Structure formats: structure tokens, C-alpha cells
Computed example of a mutant assay.
Amino acid sequence: MVDTFQAPLWCANAHLQTLLPTFLNRQFRLPLQHQTLTTPDHDFLDLIWTERPQADFNKPIVIIFHGLEGSINSPYAQGMMSALKKAGWIGLLMHFRGCSGRPNLRARSYHSGETADARFLINWLQQQYPAHPLMAIGYSLGGNMLLNLLAEPQASGLIAAVSVSAPLRLDLCSARLQQGFSRVYQHHLLSRMKKNLNNKVSTGALAEFPVPNTAQLTTFHAFDETITAPLHGFASAAEYYQKCSAFDKLTDINTPCLLIHSKDDPFMTPEVIPRPDQVSALVELAISKKGGHVGFVQGNIQRPTFWLEQTIPTWLSQFSKSTI
């Protein structure tokens, strides 16, 4: 059982919770190791390790799946990599295609239901480092993707997983981000998505895909209808949302999983958050009233602390201890 997050009075606002980790500009002096993994379709995945595994040790490896347009530079990713290192584990961040700072080679990119690259990585890790238990943490889009993977019929290859602020119903989240201040988040993320798309167009990887003037794509729905859906084999944004939302698959999860959400998440609506009877017996819910989107900041204004970086390693430790 995870103690519910309690927001301090000075940071009770959902937008402050969401934005503060970015503005704090914490300094991480963590030596990181880079690796590029070639995928079966001759594309690549850029990986970031806190340290490379050694054959004579069996430290757990914890994979981080970042959010939409995230990377190793995302504050939550750096914070968690540091927390995993402190816990004595190996952190491994997998950049989704096109998110590491260079365009990927194939036309396809990544999306909320694209589990093939994650499963390829997990299978590769099992083959290369069979003595190392594998766990995973997914944030936002990466959290929804991870839950989709956990709900698939084949074994996940993970001993435990955590999903944070996942957009479990993509249609509702897309609509929510067109309302009020949340449109600021939509504009920011769309700007990055369109910039990366235009960079990829310049490489020729999308030569056979009709890319429109990206200035016309002013909402997530428009981007998903025009780019995400047809590029990845969906008839429409509606079909993409329906097939790739993890909400209705939560009862199929057979890996121990912690699902973290805040009710004031400005990317969500209350209908996105599942009840205990809507998840499998192996899914533990940690639902708080406050916390924003991937925020969960505590402490005081002079010295804030980060609940996720304390809570997630503690929760995962119950599974890692049983394997080593």
C-alpha cells in the first residue's frame, strides 16, 4: 500500500505542480553512458544507462519510458535516473524513435500504443543480461504504452512496473487539452512535435507520406488525424484513440503494477482514472487529490522534494529483494 501523495499548501495548484519541476532546473551530476541499439526494421533506439550491467552482478535494471516528446533531458527522467542509481540499481532510459535529438530512419515513429520497440528492448535485455531482473517505469504517454504492453497476452518480461500520469483514455485527454490553460501544454507539445516532424521530412524518411503544412495542425486531434493515425496504420484519430487507450485493458494486466494519478491532472478528466474494480488484482492504485501531471512536489519552497523519486523505488524494492 502506497501512502497517498499530499500536496503542501504552497504548491497545491495543479499547474504549479506540473510546471515547477521544469522551472527548478535541478543540477544532476550523474555520469551517463550512451548506447545505440539497431531495431529489426533497421532503425535505431538511443539508450541512456546509469551504468552498464556486469556479468558477475545481478543488479535490477529499471527501464524508463518517457512521455510525449520527452528525453533524458526531461526533469522527471533525470530525477528518477539519479534515484535509481542511489537505490543501487541500474537505470536505463529508452528514447522513443526521434526523441533523442536526431530523426529516426523509418517513416514510423512512436505513439501511445506502440509496444514493439519496448518489447524488443526487453527481449534483448533478457538475452544479454539474463541474471538481471527487469522492472519499468512509464511516464504519461510512456505510461500508457507500458500498460498496453503489460496487458498483452505474452509475458511482459518484467517483474514489476509503475505507470505515472498515463492518458488512459486518449480521446478524453485530447479533448481536455483543448480547454482553458491546458491549451498552453497542447501548444508547447505540438510545437515540438511539428518541429521534429519537419526535421524528419528534411531527411527524406517521409518521402512517400503526404505531410501537410504543419501550421494547420493546431490540436492534438488534428495532428493525430493527419499524421499519427495514417502513419501507423489507423483509419482515423478515433480508431487510434480507441485501440491504443489502455483503460479497458487494465483488467488483463498480469504483472505487479503501481498506477499513479492525481485527480487534478490538467491533461485528464475524472473519467480517465480507474476504480479498483476496473483493474486487475495485480494493479495497485495510488490516486491523490493533488499532484498535477507528473508533478507530485512536496517539501517547502526553499527545498522542494519529489515524491515520485522517493515512492517509486520504495515500491519496486519489494519485488527486487525477492529476486536477489
Rank of each mutant, 00 (worst) to 15 (best):
R97D: 01
A116H: 12
A118P: 09
A83Y: 08
K86G: 03
M94P: 01
G88N: 12
H132D: 07
S74V: 04
G142V: 00
H111R: 08
S165F: 05
S100Y: 08
L134Q: 01
H111N: 12
G138E: 05
Y129T: 07
M94H: 06
G138P: 02
Q154D: 12
I159S: 10
G98L: 04
P133I: 12
I159Q: 12
N104D: 12
E114Y: 15
Q127H: 13
G143A: 11
M94G: 04
S163V: 00
A107H: 09
M81R: 09
L92H: 03
R97L: 05
L150N: 00
A161K: 01
A118D: 08
S109Q: 07
S156I: 04
G143N: 08
H111Q: 10
C99E: 07
R102P: 03
H132E: 12
Q78D: 08
G79I: 02
V162H: 02
A87Q: 15
L149C: 05
R106V: 14
P133V: 13
L93N: 01
Y76L: 01
L141F: 03
N123E: 15
L105H: 15
A87I: 12
I90V: 13
Q127S: 10
L134P: 01
G143M: 02
P103D: 11
S112W: 11
Y129W: 15
P153T: 11
G138V: 01
G138Y: 02
L147K: 00
L147G: 00
W89S: 00
L105V: 09
Q78L: 15
S140G: 10
Q78Y: 12
R106P: 07
V162Q: 06
M81Q: 13
S109C: 09
G138C: 04
G142T: 04
S112D: 09
A136G: 01
L93Q: 03
R97F: 04
M81P: 06
V162N: 05
G91Y: 04
N123A: 14
G157Q: 06
A118K: 06
S156A: 13
Q126W: 14
E114A: 14
G91I: 00
I137T: 02
N104H: 11
L125D: 06
G138W: 02
A136L: 02
L84K: 04
I159C: 12
A161V: 03
